[in-house]
């Protein structure tokens, strides 16, 4: 009798292939992208069209230089996913070179220098985003006022960086909150802060990404620990401050449906490579991201903070893993890092 030994994972078929998982995440962004396009025009789609080939070229160039199998690495769709996430995160008014610089920072520096998929300690898309935010603060905070969507031709001209975009730009809910926090009169008169149930326009963006996130949860692509931890952490720290002083601090509901909250909770923070790995560790990881987002939004120098909070917790993820090693079956509590 001959026995064939096969190493794990013992799965068959294409459904559990890395590429299949990545594609599911990309499909889940569709509702969010649709709402972004409806509110802000074609800019997001143009960003996507530039970002995806740029990411593939950057990845292929590094792999070629290292003498690795280019076709195999590109077939896992991870570069495409990074490009999609970065294209969604940056404003739809951005010129074409902005996203190209971001993609190079994300794919080359944050991902390939660490050895490619599965090795990167930082979330590549968020490294790209933060590099852009710090280098080009003007372009990166220029959002269109909701429902003022320019025609596809105007969007195209913005991509080529020749159009004057100032006429249609407006403050996002988080921008006006930062400007007017503590001033009850101004807060009441800003229409952008009073949408159907949160900041105008942005509540629908967040709702759409929540929908995509629920799809990912239902397909078991992500576990619930990180998004629930992050949203709960954010709401629980916002609640007491809002109850104490609702002129200075925004409500938990406003925070949950503003900026990149839902997008960050379901699509960014859940990156399995750069997040904590144990269940308990993931809850801590998510909750601390939520707390950091609230702290930087309410007191910091930047209107939104999901990218910074995710990078800061990426930094802490190995340490969280170190202290939350689960007990292996048949052994007592994990020794390493328990006490020393």
């Amino acid at each position: 009798m001959s026995l064939i030994t096969v190493t794990s994972p013992h799965t068959t078929g294409q459904r559990n292939h890395t590429g299949a998982f990545m594609r599911q995440v990309i499909y889940a962004t569709i509702p969010g992208v649709a709402v972004l396009t409806w509110l802000f025009g074609w800019g997001t789609l143009f960003n996507l069209i530039i970002a995806v080939p740029a990411a593939l070229i950057a990845e292929a160039a590094v792999l070629k230089a290292r003498g690795r199998d280019v076709r195999f690495a590109l077939s896992d769709w991870s570069a495409v996913l990074t490009a999609v996430l970065l294209a969604i995160a940056i404003p739809p008014t951005s010129p074409w070179w902005l996203i190209v610089i971001g993609i190079v920072a994300a794919i080359v520096v944050a991902k390939q220098l660490y050895g490619g998929l599965g090795m990167n300690p930082f979330n590549p898309a968020m490294v790209g985003y933060v590099v852009l935010l710090i280098s080009f603060p003007l372009e990166m905070t220029r959002w269109i006022a909701p429902h003022e969507a320019p025609s596809w031709f105007d969007s195209f001209r913005m991509v080529l960086a020749s159009a004057n975009v100032d006429a249609i730009t407006g403050a996002t809910p988080l921008d006006s909150l930062r400007t007017w926090a503590g001033n009850a009169e101004q807060l009441a008169s800003q229409p952008i802060l009073h949408g159907s149930f949160a900041g105008a326009g942005w509540e629908w963006v967040n709702l759409a990404f929540l929908l995509g996130g629920i799809y990912l949860l239902a397909r078991k692509i992500i576990s619930w620990h990180i998004p629930v931890g992050m949203l709960a952490g954010m709401a629980l720290i916002a609640l007491p401050f809002w109850l104490a002083d609702d002129v200075r601090y925004a409500s938990p509901l406003f925070h949950l449906f503003s900026g990149a909250a839902m997008f960050g909770a379901f699509f960014i923070a859940t990156d399995p490579v750069s997040a904590a790995t144990s269940r308990y560790g993931r809850l801590i990881y998510g909750a601390l991201i939520g707390v950091l987002v609230w702290v930087i939004r309410s007191n910091g120098g930047y209107p939104d903070a999901v990218a910074f909070a995710v990078l800061l917790m990426n930094m802490a993820a190995p340490t969280i893993d170190y202290y939350t090693q689960p007990r292996s079956y048949g052994h007592r509590k994990a020794k390493r890092g328990a006490s020393r």
């Binding site: 930082f122 933060v130 590099v131 710090i134 930087i296 007191n299 910091g300 910074f308």
Partner: peptide, 10 residues
Amino acid sequence: LAFMGFSGLI
């Protein structure tokens, strides 16, 4: 880069 997020906190 990540720590730049804290700038302006205090």
